[in-house]
């Protein structure tokens, strides 16, 4: 709806300009869309404040490798989460739908790799929940 009317809220429909954050940055910020990144002044990093990087420098090489894969899963999955909400209000949007297909394929591959090398993340895997750390423990245990 383009026209504005009295006595009801109006929000412009977002248009797709093809400009998206890379997926690591998107996860850190909270959206794949630069035009929806509207930060709060008090949330800006203080000078000298170290932005925590994942994975943590400590830990053994196997854990670091696992955390890198988990980071990748988090990034691709989040890009998909944000994209799906866009598609919810823009059904049939061609570019968004084709990106969705790519992300779904990448996510499937990464989840399978994680299951095979480390531990299961979904119930479509065969292993029990007791394999690997619980998510709320943080990855560094």
């Amino acid at each position: 709806m383009e026209a504005q009317h009295l006595a009801i809220a109006s929000v412009p429909i977002q248009s797709w300009n093809g400009n998206l954050y890379d997926y690591a940055q998107a996860l850190r910020i909270g959206t794949i869309f630069p035009e929806l990144n509207l930060p709060f002044f008090a949330a800006e990093s203080l000078p000298g404040e170290a932005v925590p990087t994942t994975p943590g420098g400590s830990g053994n090489p196997i854990q670091q490798e696992r955390e890198l894969l988990m980071d990748k899963i988090n990034q691709i999955s989040f890009a998909l989460d944000d994209l799906v909400l866009f598609i919810d209000t823009h059904p049939g949007h061609q570019e968004a739908v084709s990106l969705r297909k790519q992300l779904i394929e990448q996510r499937k591959r990464l989840l399978k790799e994680h299951d095979e090398k480390y531990y299961p993340l979904t119930k479509d895997c065969e292993g029990p929940w007791t394999e690997g750390p619980l998510p709320w423990e943080g990855a560094c245990i």
Binding site: M1, S10, L36, A43
Partner: peptide, 19 residues
């Protein structure tokens, strides 16, 4: 900060749903 951005994105989507 991540969760705060999500509130803004969800606002946009609910606005679009209302439209």
């Amino acid at each position: 900060k991540f969760l705060r951005t999500r509130e803004i994105v969800h606002f946009q989507r609910f606005g679009e749903a209302l439209e």
